[in-house]
């Protein structure tokens, strides 16, 4: 049985861009990666609040007033950098591909590749 070709061509690396507008796939993927990070954070926060609440140790006002020391501040910076790396990963990939393949105009429209 002969194979039916896909309506939106795949790239050589088996990846696919569904939108013709350059960058739109990346934008969607960035949003999904961000949502994943947010879900993990919400989950962790929920766990912490439940554990601390069970122990009678949580005071929401104290959390609001919290001043991090140097070590905690550094940890928070690392966390923020990690989140940023994750969110920007699709764009980072795009930039890497650009370095290898050159400008869009020389490659044709994404869905035609």
């Amino acid at each position: 049985m002969s194979k039916i070709p896909p309506p939106i061509s795949k790239r050589e690396d088996d990846g696919v861009r569904f939108f013709e507008t350059p960058g739109l796939d990346m934008l969607y993927r960035t949003c999904l990666a961000l949502a994943e990070e947010l879900a993990v954070t919400q989950d962790r926060l929920d766990t912490l609040e439940r554990v601390l609440s069970q122990r009678g140790q949580i005071d929401p006002e104290e959390v609001d007033r919290f001043e991090p020391d140097a070590h905690a501040e550094n940890q928070k910076r690392i966390m923020a950098a990690r989140l940023s790396e994750h969110v920007l990963a699709p764009i980072k990939d795009l930039v890497k591909q650009y370095e290898v393949r050159g400008p869009e105009a020389e490659r044709g429209r994404p869905h035609e590749r």
Partner: peptide, 14 residues
């Protein structure tokens, strides 16, 4: 880990 479980829960929901 709880972090990976949270990712799996999110992916499942997505």
């Amino acid at each position: 880990s709880s972090r990976i479980r949270a990712r799996q829960r999110f992916v499942l929901a997505l």
